[in-house]
Simulated scan of single mutants.
Amino acid sequence: MEPLTEQRHVPGPLVFGFLHLVRVSRSRQLALTRAITEYCRRHELTLAGVYMERGSSTPSAFVGMLDALTATQSYGVVLPTPSHLGPKVIAAERRSQLTEAGARLLLIRGEQTAPPGAAAPPLTAGGTE
């Protein structure tokens, strides 16, 4: 007889983490990465990786993450706060790109968004930024 699903490892929805880091220490970067990892663990999400953008020096990090989201048909992106999408001018465009890709925006702290027609917004969990 097969074990019940609750007794078997069943992977959760695939997500990517994203960090926009400006003048952030290595310890802060590690803490933010741990916060994303812990959020995924608590919400039974499979974290495929964390993309990091350091100011405007690595704008390709977001593009790479967007490509990975599309290629893997992932569930969404986990951010510590909305500010990790980048400066306000860029963040609005990135939100739009994520929506067009059908990705959910999962925030450890802050407002939650989901693409149009989504059944329910994702969960919010307390955490640190």
Rank of each mutant, 00 (worst) to 15 (best):
V22Y: 09
F16W: 15
G127V: 09
R23L: 01
A101Q: 03
L106K: 08
G110A: 12
G76M: 04
Y39T: 00
L4C: 06
P80A: 14
V22L: 10
P80K: 10
S27Y: 04
P13F: 10
S56F: 02
A120E: 11
R95E: 11
L66G: 10
L30Q: 15
S96Q: 11
G102M: 05
E111K: 13
R41G: 07
R104H: 15
E44T: 09
E129C: 05
S27K: 06
A101S: 07
V24L: 09
A103I: 04
A120W: 02
S83F: 13
M65P: 06
E53T: 03
A119Q: 13
S60Y: 03
S56A: 10
M65E: 02
R41D: 06
S27P: 01
S27M: 01
G102W: 08
V10R: 10
A61P: 03
L105S: 01
G55N: 10
A48T: 05
R94C: 01
R109T: 13
T128S: 14
P115M: 06
L107M: 04
P59I: 01
E2R: 11
A61L: 01
T33E: 12
F16M: 08
P115N: 05
P115Y: 07
A35V: 02
R41M: 04
I108S: 03
G12M: 13
M1I: 13
L14V: 05
G86Y: 01
S57G: 02
P11A: 13
T81I: 10
T99H: 11
T124M: 08
G64W: 02
A125Y: 12
L47N: 08
G102I: 04
A92Y: 02
E111D: 13
L85G: 03
A120N: 08
L4T: 05
Q29N: 12
L107S: 00
R41C: 05
G64S: 10
E44L: 03
S60P: 00
L69N: 08
V50A: 04
R54H: 15
P87A: 07
V10I: 14
C40I: 03
A119K: 13
Y75S: 09
T81S: 14
A68I: 00
G55S: 05
D67C: 06
A125D: 13
P3I: 09
P122C: 06
A119Y: 08
G55Y: 07
A35P: 00
Y75M: 10
P82Q: 15
V50D: 08
E44Q: 06
A92C: 04
V24M: 12
E100N: 08
G117A: 06
H84M: 02
Y75C: 12
V50L: 11
L32Q: 08
G76W: 12
L14R: 09
A31K: 14
G110M: 13
V89Y: 00
G86A: 01
L106D: 05
H20Q: 13
A61G: 03
Q29F: 12
E38D: 15
L85Y: 03
F62A: 04
L30S: 11
T124K: 06
I90V: 06
Y51T: 03
